[in-house]
Amino acid sequence: MMRVGLIGLGMMGRHHARVLQHLDGVELAAVSDPGGDVHGAAPGVPLYPDVAGLIGHGVDAAVCAVPTALHEPVGMQLAEAGIHAFIEKPIAADVASGQRLVDAFASRGLVGAVGHIERFNPALQELKRRLDAGDLGKIHQIATRRQGPFPGRITDVGVARDLGTHDLDLTMWLGGDRFAEIDSQSAILVRDGREDLIAITGRLRNDVITNHLVNWLSPMKERVTTVTGEAGAFVADTLTADLTFYENGSVETEWEALANFRGVKEGNITRFAFPKPEPLKTELEAFRDAIRSGAPGIVTLEDGLHTLRAAEAVINGPSVSGSFNGD
């Protein structure tokens, strides 16, 4: 059994506690939160008020579900103790802090993962499998919409670092490359000093065009990813974990008024059926397997750092064509 510790028992930490207590091959050995386990997320599990106590208890790996500003100091404590770590996204509050975490884990040969959970949504997992199999052919564009009401629990970052990093990460993952250019328009409409609406456009190094609408101002919640390519378009709804394929048509149009339009034609629409496990369970299984056998599948610290670089480029204003260095 792999002994895993959990640091932070807030909104996300409670979910980690629930999944870790039932994950095959894993024992939730200890938890840590200065406020205690007020929600009863881990009854009977040894509880410590600080990270040092959890480290002293003895764990092989740890999940860090604390506010973003604490990711670096907590992550560094774990690295120095030789403990593999899963750090909730974003990797850190800024690129410099993220780089120090990458270096600390790499120099000690430790597994480090970042909690970009959208990659593990069943709809996106199935979409990635089909893209890798060549079902869409060449990818032309990836567009995302991630909109909804403001979550009161988010106080330390704006919408770009919180929600936007999901879309930047999943786009690079689905598109198979990093950003070459990225521009944005943003607004601060509700909170002082933190953007709550942003529109992002970009281009990956392999020339895939990207568009992302992200806000905390919409009365409806929306989580949609559309990938358009040679064979048609996939639409993934990660709220319902549904994946639909809109195929380019091959039937000739007999109606003259419609035939005058050039471009692709409407074809068959297919909604796929596939298993839909809980994304957090799949994500933590990937972390477990990476430690056990070096299995691929986690969002690495390096991946998380590239995503944070893209987010900072977005926040800091439009980039000059070609000036954004995704490396």
Rank of each mutant, 00 (worst) to 15 (best):
A106M: 11
A106Q: 15
R108L: 12
R108F: 11
R108M: 12
G109P: 10
G109M: 13
L110N: 08
L110W: 07
L110H: 10
L110Y: 11
G112Y: 07
G112F: 10
V114C: 12
G115C: 08
G115A: 12
H116M: 12
I117Y: 08
I117C: 09
E118Y: 13
P122M: 08
P122T: 09
P122Y: 05
P122S: 10
A123S: 15
A123V: 07
Q125Y: 10
L127Q: 05
K128P: 04
K128H: 15
K128E: 12
K128R: 14
R129L: 12
R130S: 06
R130K: 12
L131P: 01
L131W: 05
D132G: 09
A133R: 11
A133C: 09
G134Y: 07
G134D: 10
G134Q: 09
D135C: 12
D135W: 09
L136E: 03
G137D: 06
G137T: 08
G137A: 08
K138D: 11
H140S: 09
H140V: 08
Q141V: 11
Q141S: 13
Q141I: 09
I142H: 02
I142E: 01
I142G: 00
I142A: 00
T144D: 01
T144A: 07
R145F: 07
R145E: 12
R145T: 13
R146S: 06
R146P: 02
Q147G: 03
Q147W: 04
Q147M: 13
G148V: 05
G148W: 02
G148C: 06
F150K: 08
F150G: 01
P151H: 08
P151R: 06
P151C: 07
G152L: 14
G152H: 15
G152Q: 14
R153G: 04
I154W: 04
I154Y: 05
I154S: 01
I154Q: 03
T155M: 07
T155C: 05
D156M: 09
D156V: 10
D156P: 07
V157H: 01
V157E: 04
G158P: 04
G158S: 08
G158A: 06
G158Q: 04
V159G: 00
V159I: 11
V159L: 03
R161T: 09
R161H: 14
R161K: 15
D162S: 15
D162H: 15
D162A: 14
D162N: 15
D162E: 13
D162V: 10
D162T: 13
G164M: 02
T165F: 00
T165G: 02
T165E: 02
T165H: 02
D167T: 07
D167I: 03
D167K: 03
L168Y: 01
L168I: 10
L168K: 03
D169Y: 05
D169E: 14
D169G: 01
L170G: 01
W173P: 01
L174R: 03
L174F: 05
G175K: 00
G175I: 00
G176N: 03
D177C: 05
R178K: 12
R178E: 10
A180F: 09
E181Y: 11
I182A: 01
I182Y: 00
D183V: 13
D183F: 06
Q185V: 14
Q185D: 14
Q185L: 13
S186L: 11
A187G: 07
A187P: 01
I188R: 15
I188E: 15
L189Y: 07
L189F: 09
V190S: 14
V190M: 14
